[in-house]
Computed example of a mutant assay.
Amino acid sequence: MTVRVMLISPAMNAALRAARFEGDAPLDRSGRERARAAGGAVPEAGLTRSGPSERCRETAGALGLAARTEPALSGWDMGRWAGLTLEEVAAAEPAEVAAWLGDPSAAPHGGESLHGLIRRIGGWLDSLGGPAAPGAGVLAVAEAAVVRAAVVHGLRLSAEAFWRLDVAPLTLTELSGRSERWNVALGRPLTARTAG
């Protein structure tokens, strides 16, 4: 059965502004205000979910969603690099950063490899497109890396394509289809025209 999966990237916060590796922190005032303003543009869905990060949960709440936390939508586990910037890590561990950027199966930070992230998110995505697929679709607030991994999996792209996808805050990415066959509509801003 075909299912519509709508992924909203969370609003801005201080960690995102500083380009920190998945630094889990609350939304800043601007992010909270923008999420509240976008609440009327959120499409309807049969199931609403949120990644477990504070940023995702708070964005879901500001959008007016009663979203259940979905552990499978956890952000990319960056191990000991969590909370640091790429610049900080590159200065301290240049060889490890080069390995991480060049090999999708590498996890020099002690967390999750890119292949691992794509497999995890792909498994969640494919579990939605089976015979018990929700008719009205699934809407989830998920970290940008999760959205990128879903697109890579859905379109069967190489893992390297992950690095070429940009997901802006408070944008909607839609996947429609089923396990093994997905179509993608990328990164539309949450405005009145995305409703419905």
Rank of each mutant, 00 (worst) to 15 (best):
R49N: 00
E96M: 03
L175I: 05
S50K: 05
G79T: 11
L65Y: 06
R181H: 15
G46N: 04
A41M: 06
T48G: 08
A106V: 03
L7K: 09
T69F: 00
P94C: 03
E143V: 07
A144L: 05
A185R: 12
V167P: 03
E33D: 14
T194M: 12
L73G: 08
S30I: 11
P134V: 10
L170W: 07
S74I: 12
H109T: 10
A132I: 00
A25E: 14
S53E: 15
R119A: 15
A41F: 13
R57E: 14
V141D: 12
E22M: 06
E88F: 05
R49C: 13
H109K: 05
P104D: 01
E93R: 04
E88N: 05
T171N: 07
E44G: 12
T2E: 10
P52N: 10
V184M: 00
R55N: 14
R55Q: 15
G122L: 02
L114G: 06
L114A: 11
E93F: 07
A161M: 11
V97Y: 05
E174Q: 02
S127A: 14
A72E: 15
I118E: 07
G64Y: 06
L157F: 08
A195M: 14
L73H: 11
G102C: 09
R4I: 07
A60T: 11
A92I: 08
V146Y: 11
T69M: 01
M6I: 05
P43L: 09
A38H: 14
G79S: 13
G64V: 07
D166A: 15
W100I: 00
P134N: 09
S9K: 08
P134G: 04
E93N: 03
L16P: 07
G177Q: 10
N183G: 13
W163I: 02
G40W: 07
G51D: 08
R178I: 04
L73T: 15
F162V: 04
R4C: 00
R4W: 01
S179C: 09
A99Q: 09
A106E: 08
V42N: 10
G46F: 04
V138H: 03
G122N: 06
E96N: 10
A62M: 01
R34H: 12
A107L: 04
A106R: 08
A35D: 10
A150F: 03
L86T: 04
G64M: 04
G111W: 02
S127C: 06
V5C: 02
M12Q: 14
D28A: 02
A132M: 08
A106Q: 10
A19Y: 13
L139F: 01
W81I: 05
L190N: 01
A133N: 06
S158I: 10
L65P: 03
A142C: 13
R119D: 15
L165T: 02
P104K: 01
R188F: 14
G23P: 07
A90P: 06
A82E: 15
L125D: 01
L175M: 01
A144K: 03
E180G: 11
G83I: 03
R80H: 11
E33A: 15
E58V: 06
A161T: 13
D77M: 09
P71N: 08
S127I: 00
T171A: 00
I121H: 07
E88D: 12
P43T: 03
G135V: 10
A62K: 02
G111P: 12
R36M: 13
A144C: 13
I121G: 13
A92C: 09
